[in-house]
């Protein structure tokens, strides 16, 4: 039996004493998808990822990887997952090559050639035999990425993978992620770099205070916040007409213009003309993911 959903999270909850860190998260990541997991600091992203990786006990809910339930007591499905969460976990007195060599012992068929391959992939081949404890933050992050990729995982879970990297390093990671995604690897990416997420991810979930406040394809989410601006002969009449249009989130007059949110420009024009109002000018303003993120995460904050 094959499972299209590589990762399924159902009503996942985690309480630390009186604090509810994750409060009923449900999501599903399909095979080959690049899924963005966004939220401000303290929103519950890392706790969620910790539960997915079997490091944190869920208070309630369920995590399934490749159709198999995962918990700290049952984590065999994680053999098919590569992850980099926060600062990379390395044995500091070992070289980059030795760290990868250690990890290779956990997986069958990973030889020196693959170790060399991933070192080259993250541009660490020149520093492969240096003690990793002396690496810069960016180099450690590259090593962490190499460790996550070593066993050719089917699902890659990354939490802020470009932390501490210089712009060139960030660009390299972005290019690498694009390449991995194009090769069909499923990627679950948590990042503050919204421009990158916007470019790379097929779908995103936005978290606020342990809850998902928006989830869906990036284009759809941004489309929901698209503002359509129309110039009409009688703005007051147009406002009244547009208020009857299904899906309209907000509508208000602005001089000779009317601004409408929550619906597409096509729907606005069709609705107005159907009601005898012909727009003389139509334009749309689509917010970037950053604006959307800020709006979603700062609402009612």
């Amino acid at each position: 039996m094959t499972h299209a959903a590589v990762l399924e999270v159902k009503d996942l909850r985690k309480r630390f004493g009186a604090v509810s860190a994750v409060d009923g998260i449900s999501l599903s990541v399909q095979a080959g998808e690049v899924y963005g997991f966004l939220g401000p600091n303290g929103a519950g992203k890392t706790t969620t990822i910790g539960m997915v990786l079997g490091l944190i006990h869920a208070t309630a809910g369920e995590v399934r990887l490749f159709g198999e339930a995962v918990s700290p007591a049952r984590n065999a499905a994680l053999k098919r997952v590569g992850s980099l969460v926060g600062a990379p976990a390395i044995v500091p007195y070992l070289s980059a090559r030795q760290n990868l060599g250690l990890l290779a012992r956990l997986h069958r068929g990973i030889g020196e050639a693959r170790v060399a391959e991933v070192l080259a992939l993250v541009d660490l081949d020149q520093a492969a035999d240096r003690t990793s404890g002396n690496f810069s933050t960016g180099m450690k992050q590259r090593l962490g990425l190499a460790m996550a990729l070593l066993h050719r995982p089917e699902l890659l879970i990354l939490d802020e993978p470009t932390n501490g990297m210089d712009p060139a390093g960030m660009r390299d990671v972005r290019t690498l992620l694009r390449r991995l995604a194009s090769e069909g690897m499923t990627v679950f990416l948590s990042s503050h770099l919204l421009h990158e997420v916007e470019q790379i991810c097929d779908r995103v979930a936005v978290l606020r205070r342990g809850q998902i406040v928006a989830q869906g394809p990036v284009a759809t989410l941004m489309g929901r916040k698209e503002v359509v601006k129309v110039q009409v002969p009688s703005p007051q009449q147009a406002v009244a007409v547009l208020r009857t249009l299904s899906g309209v989130a907000a509508v208000h007059g602005n001089g000779r213009y009317v601004e409408v949110g929550g619906v597409s420009a096509e729907a606005v024009v069709r609705h107005l003309t159907a009601n005898g109002i012909v727009p003389t000018e139509v334009s749309t303003t689509r917010p970037d993911l950053e604006s959307l993120f800020l709006e979603l995460t700062q609402e009612a904050a």
Binding site: L53, G54, L55, P72, A73, N75, A76, A77, L78, K79, V81, S83, V85, G86, A87, A89, I90, V91, P92, L103, L106, H107, M147, H151
Partner: peptide
């Protein structure tokens, strides 16, 4: 401290 325990566990090694 190094979080290497996290690493081995997140690779499917039982506690």
């Amino acid at each position: 401290t190094w979080r290497t325990l996290h690493l081995w566990l997140s690779r499917g090694v039982g506690r």
